[in-house]
Amino acid sequence: MTAYLLRRSFQTVLTLFVMSVLVFVGVYMIGNPVDVLISASATPQERQDIIRAFGLDQPVWTQYWTFLTNSLAGDLGNSFVFNQPALKLILSRMPATLELAFCALVLAVFVGIPLGVWAGLKPDRLTSRMIMTFSILGFSLPTFWIGLMLVMLFSVKLGWLPASGRGQTVELLGVPVSFLTWDGLAHLILPAINLALYKVSLVIRLTRAGVIECLQMEYIRFARAKGLTDARIVFVHVLKNTLIPLITVIGLELGSVIAFAVVTETVFSWPGMGKLIIDAIGNLDRPLILAYLMIIVLMFSLINLVVDILYSVVDPRVRLEGGSE
């Protein structure tokens, strides 16, 4: 297990390095941030000063080398726009996005799996057909449109829930969170539902397919021949087998929810990372873009590692390579 973790860590570092080179070169080629940052009335002297201050007069490999050595020391550079450490900026916005993403994930799992199991067990029932129709809608309707409709209905027409912001937050282990106050929770509901809708649909369809496939297996027939109750067969024999493909997909989806919550965050003015990165790209704020992408890469690597470990827990046939038997 230790050998396995060591090898995975090494792979992650390698991925981060390759990623940083690609992004650095990519961002370098997009355009000159000075043109965006400086007002048109600035004198050539002011312009030169800023270019020098940002280190943009150096050749690209020197700039990259500076970035690399600094980042090894934990410094991912200062944002051009905010003139603050990029890492700090991102980390200050991260809890909001993470909270939203995890809420969406919890919804996807706790709504999607039961509905999917039901639709798989009783595929001919009217309720199952309704569930499947719902999942098609959840798949195909655009997130921003659903977001707007939710705001229209619940905030504007009915006035039940707030339409924007995080509401009141409290500190949990030094991190501000919304879900522990009524006000925060009320602010969280709509964006979380909005973000979860696609994932719920995905989980429903995957679970249903898994359950239907599993029910045809010979070991389910054998389980019935043993005289087990239906509940035992569904919740132990079927569900555990269905979880195997689900874990992989949910893991990957968690990563994409965190990285691409932009649309929902924009619709609900949720103060998360998504808004930050969009602005950073607009301003060509190189350190911020770089730092954001590095963090996302790191997060994906971590999630994949957790998924692989969970996988070996659920499926005994999977043994982690390099692990001790």
């Binding site: 027939r221 054998f222 024999h237 555990k240 087998n241 195997i244 005994p316 046939r317």
Partner: peptide, 13 residues
């Protein structure tokens, strides 16, 4: 049953 490779649930001890 016929096929012993299929009658036991692979994920349960």
């Amino acid at each position: 049953f016929q096929d012993p490779m299929m009658t036991l649930n692979p994920v349960l001890r």
